[in-house]
Design a protein around this nucleic acid. Structure first.
Lengths: 287, 287
DNA sequence: GCATTCTATGAAAATAAATTTCTTGGGGTA
DNA sequence: TACCCCAAGAAATTTATTTTCATAGAATGC
């Protein structure tokens, strides 16, 4: 049953007052979720029985059931984590992945230390140059994303995914540089080494990793992400979504930390894209 | 208020029966969400007033409020989309990004055509070689992720983010090759050209893009993703989360389509990682 | 064009649900 | 031993929800 769909009345089965009710509910879900049937009826200018009937038409058992469904729906539909079945159908695979991704985002939001993130953003914004290190598929993606976001904001940044290269880059880093590292496990020895090199050179370091890990201990600013890992080895880790969101938030804070610089850089990029393509600026800032 | 936290009774404020209630609720959220106070009381072996008091202690207004909060919580906390305030605090930025990411995942799940995905998975699994094209930051990330997931499953795959290169690769593609393309906007002319080249050579093509776009029209199998774009130019598009999830699902389906090959490949990679590092196999399959 | 049927709706009644008040009994404390 | 406090339930009360019944208007059939 899909309340979201039902409320939009695509089949046109609602009566006049029911349409009014649906509109009211969609306009102010909070109110509907928190009020009694009498309040809702009064505000909609209908009688309580009409509300009950409305709920039934939507496929709910009654008003309380409706409220529960509504609460679920508006807070993003997501099944509870089910034990994994070995014979998963494609639909189950899809649901499982989406569920876990949403869960990872939820957990991220719960445990994210905004102050640390803000501190990191200001450090990045003030940097003359940023070296971003992350190896293996996942962390590589993360630092590449950081690169992809920050260069648009006028930051000078290089992302590198090669251990030996990282080492040389760290050893060569001069004043004004900030080193950024990503490690999902927190046990990337190569990254730890780079961070130590940076520390020797009094270069500030930021990492996104598990707290209380070797990588975390080697850095100045730690964006801690502690999520349980799944067990299905076929399944890519849902932790990536959490990391990606953290990077997105970070990039935003960097943008806000120096709005004018960010705007200027974005504008140039956009102009270039628009003038070189078909003039359709829906492309915005990259495919 | 954080019901999740409250239910775990970290402050040890629960009485004996309240602990029992909390356990019952956590064990079977579905039951709690769908039953009346009498049912819940009976199943927990307590009186209804005890349940009411329990709800109050959890910070809820009463039993109905408790049910609503519970429904929200278990379906992943997520605020309704708020209009964006120009003077966003870091916390608001974080919430907004997480919200939109979850929303993108929700929408993806609602509109995803599993059969198409499954078809694409079988095509990829049967391919002798896969060329994956995606340019600019976002699509580049997507095809790199595809590469990152599929090579682990024993697929022969190359990801390329360079237009000219893609063109040459398409022109040189031989029988047994499958071309995969990603474009968020669906208007990547270079990609369209590659797809046309492939079509001339009777090479099957799969794209992940907006439906009814030039890219979609040029491909054999279309994984359609149609999400509204945000307007904040500072903000990276939340669509990325949806694409990423689609790729994850796709990779899973490829793995399940040929379990033994996938397992074999994964096992070799894992052995290599474990033997070369500190023997800690928590690293699993890449940082 | 009138009668009939159907549908939407509300009023009132009935039921069910939730909460408050009052009470009890067990554990601790002076 | 007497007192107090707290957890917990029974009964009473209040509140919320649903059902039943009645009505008016719209649609349909003859």
């Amino acid at each position: 049953m899909d309340l979201f769909h039902a409320l939009s009345d695509e089949d046109g089965k609602f009566s006049g007052l029911e349409k009014k009710l649906a509109q009211l509910v969609l306009d102010d879900v909070d109110f509907a979720v928190n009020s009694s049937i009498l309040d809702l009826a009064e505000r909609a200018g209908v009688s309580p029985p009409t509300v009950t009937r409305f709920c039934r038409r939507l496929g709910c058992q009654g008003y309380s059931d409706f409220k529960v469904q509504l609460a679920k729906m508006t807070y993003v539909g997501l099944r509870y984590l089910k034990p994994e079945t070995p014979t998963a159908t494609p639909a189950e695979v899809a649901e499982d992945i989406v569920t876990k991704a949403q869960n990872a985002l939820f957990q991220l939001h719960r445990q994210l230390d905004i102050d640390v993130l803000d501190k990191a953003a200001h450090l990045l914004r003030g940097a003359e140059f940023i070296q971003a290190f992350g190896a293996s598929g996942n962390s590589a993606m993360i630092v590449n994303e950081l690169h992809n976001r920050l260069f648009r904001l006028g930051c000078r940044i290089n992302a590198s995914n090669d251990h030996n290269m990282n080492m040389m880059l760290s050893a060569a880093a001069g004043p004004g540089t900030v080193v950024f590292g990503s490690s999902f496990t927190g046990r990337d020895q190569g990254l730890v080494h780079c961070l130590e090199l940076a520390r020797q050179r009094v270069i500030p370091t930021i990492v996104i990793t598990q707290s209380n890990s070797p990588v975390a201990r080697a850095a100045d600013v730690v964006i801690a992400i502690d999520l349980p890992e799944g067990k299905n080895i076929f399944r890519p880790t849902s932790t990536r979504y959490a990391y990606l969101a953290a990077i997105d938030i970070l990039a935003n804070l960097v943008a806000y930390a120096d709005r004018s610089r960010a705007l200027k850089a974005l504008r140039s990029i956009k102009e270039e894209l628009v003038s070189r393509r078909d003039g359709d600026d829906r492309q915005l800032l990259g495919d």
